[in-house]
C-alpha cells in the first residue's frame, strides 16, 4: 500500500504520461501547458499556467471540452446524454466541441487533471529545470526557454 503522498506522485506521473502521449495535449497547449504548441494547431490553445480553474473544473473541461472553442472533449460519450454541462448534442448545437483524437476513460481524465493541477496551473514561469524533468534530459527545447522569455 502506498502512502498518500506517494500515491499522489504516482497519479501525477500517470497523468503526465497521458497528457504527453495518448491525449496529445502538447500539440495545442505545448509540453509546458503554456500555449506554445504546434504553430499549425487549430484552436489557439491558451496558457494553462495562469488558469484559475480548480482541479475538478480541469477534469470537466478535459471530459467535455469547451463549447464554442477549439478545446475538444475526451469522453467518448460526451453529449450523448446530459453528463456534460447538463447538455446533450441537441442542447449544445453548433457550439459542440470536436472530439479529441483519442478518448479517455474516467480514471485517465482524473489523472490528467491531477497532473495539470499539480505541475502546470499556478506555475506561471516555465523553467529550464522543469523542461529537463519533463523530457528527462536537456533537449534543444530546454535551451530555448531563456530565449523565449527575452
Amino acid at each position: 500500500m502506498l502512502s498518500g503522498s506517494a500515491a499522489l506522485a504516482q497519479d501525477v506521473s500517470v497523468g503526465k504520461q497521458i497528457y504527453s502521449s495518448k491525449a496529445g495535449c502538447p500539440f495545442c497547449h505545448g509540453w509546458a501547458g503554456d500555449g506554445h504548441g504546434d504553430p499549425r494547431s487549430e484552436g489557439g490553445a491558451p496558457t494553462l499556467r495562469t488558469s484559475q480553474l480548480t482541479r475538478d473544473q480541469v477534469a470537466e473541461v478535459i471530459q467535455c471540452g469547451r463549447p464554442g472553442t477549439g478545446m475538444p472533449y475526451h469522453d467518448r460519450f460526451a453529449y450523448t446524454d446530459k453528463r456534460c454541462y447538463g447538455m446533450n448534442s441537441e442542447d449544445v448545437g453548433s457550439l459542440k466541441p470536436r472530439r479529441g483524437d483519442q478518448t479517455l476513460q474516467k480514471d485517465e481524465i482524473q489523472a490528467v487533471a491531477d497532473y495539470v493541477s499539480a505541475k502546470i496551473i499556478g506555475h506561471p514561469a516555465v523553467t529550464k529545470e522543469e523542461c529537463i524533468e519533463y523530457f528527462g534530459s536537456e533537449i534543444g527545447e530546454c535551451k530555448l526557454i531563456e530565449q523565449r522569455k527575452g
Binding site: 500555449g35 499549425r40 489557439g44
Partner: peptide
Amino acid sequence: KIAWNGGLTE
C-alpha cells in the same frame, strides 16, 4: 512567446 502563428483557426 506563446506561439508563432499569430492567431487561431477553425
